[in-house]
Design a protein around this nucleic acid. Structure first.
Lengths: 157, 157
DNA sequence: CCCGGTGAGTTGGAAAATCAAACCCTCTCC
DNA sequence: GGAGAGGGTTTGATTTTCCAACTCACCGGG
């Protein structure tokens, strides 16, 4: 059932998307990171059909991204929370949000503002930790480690 | 055809995913950023069925993320390249790759290494540009700007 | 005891998306 | 003039999604 990797080439992006790239998965993670980890909250806040949500949650729990923990014994009730690995996906959410804020909304129309502990509004930025510089496309060179890759060199419109 | 947003709540993450969250879209962007922008390369490198690829490409072009430009007049042949907006999605790919590298592969088994202009290997990191600190979940506070949000406060497993 | 409500799903069938393979058209090269 | 290459479109079968309804377990009145 999950035996044919079908991955045309080895790639961490594809591997990660195989876990969280299905419809609703990242919205579920968003909600869970916000602390809204109960089934009905997730249904309401993501818009996912209940059955789909069930399969997504199972997948995320199996992948070690979410943790399903009881918050009531009788009746058994569960809440989903991010694991450490799940929290480490937050940067993905941040960069998605930053792009949407920049390209899809006016400055005064952003659906949500995130405040950083330093007191400023967070405008997530990706840097190279070695030199501290903001990462720009033209500063990158790809070095495939396995066979099957062709890299034609960067090209911008 | 795109009239019913169905968005249970306003959110830049959801809005961005509506454009690039379908299967293969981000893999297409990966290839295009690497300079592999021709139809057959995309078919081979992403594994997408040709018809699906066609609809994904149209969507990305319509969204202003890719540019479809002829590289031969007769016969007409096209190549897809990232626009500026498309390039600004690279941080999303970087963070996905970083997560996959960290959680899905051994250190010596990474499918691809990216070299930054500073000479070091790039290990993408998200920072707050105001204070320069690495962004950590517990330093964030969400401030919804519109109705319909409940934020139960962060919770970690 | 019976009624309504909440929480967390499961079930069933219709509607939409995906897939693989085949097909098409226009060149170019031999 | 036959064999590709490139960039798609068409055709049916297979999967997924979707949505509404249903279940099961409990709680809180009246």
């Amino acid at each position: 059932m999950a035996a044919a990797p079908k991955n045309p080439r080895p790639c961490s992006i594809a591997d990660t998307l195989a876990l969280v790239g299905e419809k609703y998965s990242l919205l579920v993670l968003r909600e869970v990171c916000l602390g809204n980890g109960r089934f009905d909250q997730l249904v309401r806040n993501t818009g996912a059909p209940r059955d789909i949500l069930t399969t997504r949650l199972r997948r995320l729990v199996d992948a070690g991204i979410l943790d399903r923990r009881p918050y009531s014994e009788r009746p058994p009730r569960f809440e989903y929370r991010p694991t450490r690995a799940g929290l480490e996906l937050e940067p993905v959410l941040m960069t998605l949000m930053a792009w949407g804020d920049r390209h899809l909304h006016a400055d005064d129309d952003r659906p949500m503002v995130i405040e950083h502990a330093c007191g400023h509004e967070l405008v997530p930025q990706v840097i190279c930790p070695a030199c501290g510089d903001t990462v720009r496309h033209e500063d990158l060179t790809a070095h495939p480690q396995a066979a099957g890759w062709t890299v034609a060199g960067p090209a911008v419109a």
